[in-house]
Amino acid sequence: MTRQTTTAEGATPPRSGLSFKFDLQAYTLIIALVLIALIFGFFTGGEFLSSRNISNLFTQMAVIAVLAVGMTLVIVAGHIDLSVGALLGLAGGIAAILQVWYDWNTVAAVAAAIAVGALLGLWQGWWVAYRAVPAFIVTLGGMLIFRGILIGLSNGQTVAPLDDSFKVIGNSYFPYIPGYILAVVGIVLLVVWTVRNRAKREKMHLLVPPATIDYGKVAAYAVFILLAVYMLNRYLGTPVPFLIVLAIAGVFIFITNKTSFGRYIYAIGGNQEAAALSGINIKRNTLWVFVIMGALSGVAGVLLTSRLNAATVSAGTSYELDAIAACVIGGTSLMGGKGKIVGALIGALIMASIDNGMSMMNIGAYWQYIVKGLILILAVWIDISSKK
């Protein structure tokens, strides 16, 4: 048996990062995104990479990205939610109806939309967690129920127009100078996070990557953030919907990595029996996952309704498929127990880039469905192959 070298105090020294694993999947996503941008940039004469189109791309991806954040938690927990598109449409429709027909102010209408999403998510979660009905069946039924409720409430009409204060949510931009200030604050927080995380791992005598790797990543992220803000500021500024996505993603990245609830979700999806034997309350945590998914569907509904300045009975159609595809492309395993919020965001950006680029090239809409379907199948095949 090999003995482990210890320090003078008898503690195991922190291990160096020479054997630290290279996250091939994460960098493969980034490389794929860069290649997609270069290909579409070439075939559109550089228009795809223009500041105006990049700004539009970030705005367009916001709705799917918000759904993908919640869907990541659902899939990691070992479930699926097919109702998010219909729930998005219902929540956005309720917000529009309350404001246009009943003169509710924007804050109250938005709060109502999110609350409705959370309550309906609670209802679905109760069936899944406490009545053991498969999530596929519950959310498939929910998709039909929510779409029917929306048609009934709106009488099949398009509800519009909304107040200017509501339209601002999905169509406004963060000013230039504040945008740069926000970018610098984000970079500083990233540096502080990295320093504290390294210190914590060293204190616990865990594997610590070489400083050049950690701080090299921070430098690369900083360059990307500043470049993105520069490109967006060349048009009208940073889109507010994109900032909302970043805020939501930041919250859930913290939750999944730094809280017991986040760890429980991964444990439940990885091995439910082992999680139960470990004392994890599977029913309660599963219920909360669906509540969160419902609330985020409400947020996505507000963003879409605001951007379109109207609520329609078809709003959110097929969005659940795009959200699932974004998660799977981003590395979330449909088997449960594996997935990252950042990967889901990159997946959402890839999906939006494909739609946007093919539209700019005047390629038929049917090709967009075909390409996205093939990418989804390929992503699942890669996931299954990597497990083998």
Rank of each mutant, 00 (worst) to 15 (best):
I265A: 06
V291P: 07
A274D: 06
I244E: 12
G301D: 11
G237E: 03
P239L: 10
M293S: 15
V251S: 10
I248H: 04
I282P: 04
P239D: 07
E273W: 01
N271T: 06
N285R: 15
I292D: 01
L277C: 06
V245H: 04
I280F: 13
G298R: 13
G298H: 11
L243Y: 10
V302S: 01
I248D: 02
S306D: 04
N271I: 01
G269D: 00
I265P: 04
N309T: 08
I282L: 14
F290A: 08
Y264V: 00
G301S: 10
A274Y: 09
W288H: 03
Q272L: 03
T286G: 12
W288S: 07
G237F: 08
R263Y: 10
W288R: 08
L232S: 11
K258N: 04
Y266F: 13
S297I: 11
L304K: 01
F290C: 11
N281E: 14
F252W: 09
E273R: 15
A247S: 15
R263P: 01
A249C: 14
T305Y: 08
A267K: 03
N271E: 01
L308P: 00
G294R: 12
I280N: 13
N309R: 07
K283V: 00
I282H: 08
E273A: 03
N281L: 07
N281T: 05
V291N: 02
V251C: 13
V240G: 02
N309S: 14
V245G: 02
G237N: 03
S278F: 14
S306N: 06
L277T: 06
L277H: 12
L287I: 05
T305A: 05
P239K: 06
T286V: 15
M231C: 12
F261H: 03
Y235L: 11
R284M: 13
L236W: 04
A275T: 05
L303D: 12
A249G: 07
L243N: 13
A300N: 14
N285D: 15
V302L: 01
N257S: 13
I292G: 01
I255A: 09
L277Q: 14
V240E: 05
W288Q: 08
A300Q: 06
A247T: 15
L296Q: 02
N233E: 10
K283G: 15
R284Q: 15
I282F: 14
Y230V: 09
